[in-house]
Write a protein that binds this DNA or RNA. Sequence first.
DNA 1: AGTCCTCTGTGACAAAGTCACATACATTCC
DNA 2: GGAATGTATGTGACTTTGTCACAGAGGACT
Lengths: 212, 212
Amino acid sequence: MQLADNRFRDSFFQQAISTRVAIGSPICDQGMQCQHLALVISGVARIYKLGENGREITLYRIGPGESCILTASCIVSASPFPAFAICEEKIEALVIDSATVKQWTDEYPAWRNYLFSLISGRLGDVISVIEEIAFRRVDRRLADYLLQRGSDDNQQHIKITHQAIASDLGTSREVVSRILKDFEHQGLISVSRGQLQITDITGLSNKTLDHY
Amino acid sequence: MQLADNRFRDSFFQQAISTRVAIGSPICDQGMQCQHLALVISGVARIYKLGENGREITLYRIGPGESCILTASCIVSASPFPAFAICEEKIEALVIDSATVKQWTDEYPAWRNYLFSLISGRLGDVISVIEEIAFRRVDRRLADYLLQRGSDDNQQHIKITHQAIASDLGTSREVVSRILKDFEHQGLISVSRGQLQITDITGLSNKTLDHY
DNA sequence: AGTCCTCTGTGACAAAGTCACATACATTCC
DNA sequence: GGAATGTATGTGACTTTGTCACAGAGGACT
């Protein structure tokens, strides 16, 4: 977002309250009415759905420069928050109360565009999730997931539990464990408690292909 | 949407072009850049995803008074349309080109709010779809689906093929056929070619319950 | 009657999810 | 060091869901 408008910049720094959220803390719970919009400066939040069977699925994550658009969407349409949000990496954020959000939306085009583009982006994210879970096999999605995670750190070393992977992909821990073991037997990765290592990137990449 | 603002009303009727879409016609294809926003006056459009295996899943439908918010989202963020849209019931619509949409968004608060609430609504719809396919069993979802369809016409008579149901639910035709046959054996419905009849609403309602 | 075309049924199999456990690893506390 | 505790992973049996390759069945039209 551009803070080109001086008036807006003033108002922004006047209204925004800085906060910190500790890792693991819940941010929003399903059914909450959102009174504030949080703009993330640093850290990561994970937005997810919780099924009655206890399974989870990650809808998307929010990083620096982004803000929880579900919150914004709730504020604008005054509907309850339809998911859960939790802090994954220590968050610094600027908090703006809902009345101010609305006011800015009326007054500042730049702010308006920022909100619109955030919502659009999330809508796209969420539709991608649908495509994944509705049409793609778990082993291929898992391969994709590992490659993506591995490319963060360029050592292809990933520190995560099977349960956490399952929660991201919206499947169960047993399924993840089984497939990881398969991958290991095929020499693509090596797994140990709470972490794993990709040993054959090209081999793993082939596993992501949908046409068998 | 309120047309309270006279200036807006004038501009609206000046810019909006009336169109009709025949049943079965495609409206948007995946990957398209949207140049227009369509406001549905009458009729229904179905927005869906298509998997490489040929399966489909319905994201949501658009009825009178609504408009394809994906289109709006594409216009605002200039990204390609991420799904398919097809006309299910003969549509009358008002078409507005994207430049006008943007202009109105800047000028008219009512229009802005309308767009925001549409996007929020769709985001909610799509998240509900995720919840369904990620966590609920197909038989329960199918029972829900039938009850909902049946309550349109209050005779609980539904004219639809198994394939169409499968496309709505994001599963395959065989699965739907199997479960429908189960329901029939349990005396809940009776099926015939291209249509079915609910014979035991309470029995079918019990099938929707997630706790076994 | 026969000829299309679409819709539905079926059986065998593969993939995914569930359940009830058994182990294995890591940390902390004697 | 060793025991206890808590979390993470492994496993087998089973159900549900998805896939494939067909076989029929029901209408519509000549």
